[in-house]
Design a protein around this nucleic acid. Structure first.
Lengths: 289, 289
DNA sequence: CAATTTCTCTGACTGATGTCAGGAATTTTC
DNA sequence: GAAAATTCCTGACATCAGTCAGAGAAATTG
């Protein structure tokens, strides 16, 4: 371990930590406690179920409830029962809440703009910062089983289909799965890789309930490619498949996705003949567990 | 303002913020509240007066006192009256306290070592990180009038004399000023530039009590050179001199410090004949305020 | 329809942080 | 030597964050 390099890294993290402390202080200066503020930001323009919010922020149900009451009293959000299941409640921002979010985002953007002026648009520096952020996020990423119907899964799938549309030159849109249980335990699973607030990628196992499943929707965020995330997602999917007691995995893919082809071949998948009628597939693979 | 670059910067700060949050969590996992922990780290091996500690951490005197009591009860520090002035008290670490500090530093170093492995010693990345840290620290630095006898001033002066020793090839050591009042208001001042825990540079005004002063000990940390800190320190010293009602500033310097020479000339200083018997000086400057 | 489960909320509590008012010991000032 | 200033401390109080037990409403299960 070369000590001088370590000292340089320590200085770097120390400096950036001070920067982050400054940002937190600037946000706190708006006079709102950080807890409710984080909740407000998470609710965002789209709104969010209370349970999902609680999971996302990993808060105790009591604390969550009190923070939502506070935001409601301040007129920033409304919390209404879910019409389909009145036990569940849904938080949504009022115009005042949206304005508060926008103000906080502007504050963050202003600080980033200061940094931008400072770096004077130096592309070498920006590229290095991208690289550091990519490596760090991939290294510290955590994998999580999520609900395939959740907002997070939907966001991943939107990004995935946008990517496909670009690759194929055709407008793909995410359709609703005709068999929603296939992507949930015990038949299948939906895995997402994340780092803090950032979604790095996802992969799903679509099980038939007879010990077999298809790998679907392997997606890696464009910001986080080239650092082995696809491989790690596939490995995690395999591990999850074994845990679910699955014995055979299949997948199809297209010649327009060359990096995926390489990935499957390197990970020990066997190319097999066409097993479905997917008009966009050119290659079919199988793996026995 | 190019939006994509801004987004890249936002992603960078977001990722590094998550990294910092992880470090905080790792430190918190040692089971000690962050407040007393920060105090312990600040006391360090050298020990610190309670008042200086309070200033350094900008804590209320009541809170400071309680945190020190806690650390004392835990056997990590001792707090004893200053023998010269029994109102003042001095905190010093016990062996257990030093061990706790070392453990926390090791934790931080371990995380940095992980980052180092991740970057694979890539010099381009390290250089970019240095550059970003340097620019950021210099941009966010704050100037502070400090006591010329404080531990912070002594640290700056040690660094300054070490630098001089290297430039002159002679062993300089910081001597105690025969006239301690000359560096304090109303006659003079000692200014330090800092960012978070890092000391970026210093400059002092050594006044004669008759409206004249000499600029001494202009020092910029090697980590923070080349971004105009010397110029800003000199400007701050001038501003402070005007505030103190000084009318004439002088300084001497050596041909072994070419960047200082350039700086003084650019800042409007007039070169004048030798006005003192400093054997290491080759140039003398003056500025009327 | 009754029992159970799910989901959210309330109340009671703890600990960390922070503020303010004053008090005791000590030093400095007059 | 008395008054004033200083240094640090204690007590009272407030806010934020977090935990736990349990209540109440709604949905699901048998």
């Amino acid at each position: 371990m070369p000590e001088p390099q370590l000292d340089r890294l320590l200085r770097f993290t120390r400096t950036i930590a001070a920067e982050e402390a400054g940002r937190e202080a600037a946000l706190a200066a708006r006079g709102r406690p950080m807890g409710p503020l984080r909740a407000l930001m998470a609710i965002g323009a789209a709104g969010m179920d209370v349970g999902a919010l609680r999971d996302h922020l990993t808060l105790d149900s009591g604390l969550m409830s009190r923070q939502l009451r506070q935001l409601e009293e301040d007129g920033l959000i409304t919390v209404t029962p879910d019409p389909e299941d009145a036990r569940r409640r849904r938080a949504a921002c009022t115009p005042a809440g949206l304005a508060e979010i926008a103000a906080c985002q502007q504050l963050t953007r202003d600080r980033a703009a200061e940094l931008h002026d400072l770096l004077d648009g130096d592309e070498t520096l920006l590229a290095a910062m991208d690289r550091v952020a990519t490596l760090l996020a991939a290294h510290r990423m955590r994998l999580r089983l999520i609900d395939p119907d959740s907002a997070e899964a939907a966001a991943c799938l939107r990004a995935y289909y946008t990517e496909l549309s670009g690759r194929f030159g055709l407008p793909f849109t995410p359709g609703t799965d005709p068999d929603p249980g296939a992507l949930r335990p015990p038949r299948g699973a939906f895995l997402m890789a994340e780092h803090g607030e950032d979604r790095l990628g996802c992969v799903s196992l679509r099980g038939d309930g007879l010990g077999r499943a298809e790998i679907k929707c392997l997606w890696v965020s464009p910001d986080h490619r080239g650092v082995g995330l696809g491989r790690r997602l596939m490995a995690a999917a395999e591990t999850e498949a074994r845990r679910l007691g699955l014995t055979r995995l299949r997948l199809d893919t297209s010649r327009h996705l060359p990096e995926a082809l390489t990935l499957y071949r390197r990970a020990g998948w066997q190319e097999i003949p066409r097993y479905n009628d997917n008009p966009f597939a050119h290659h079919w693979f199988e793996k026995q567990l």
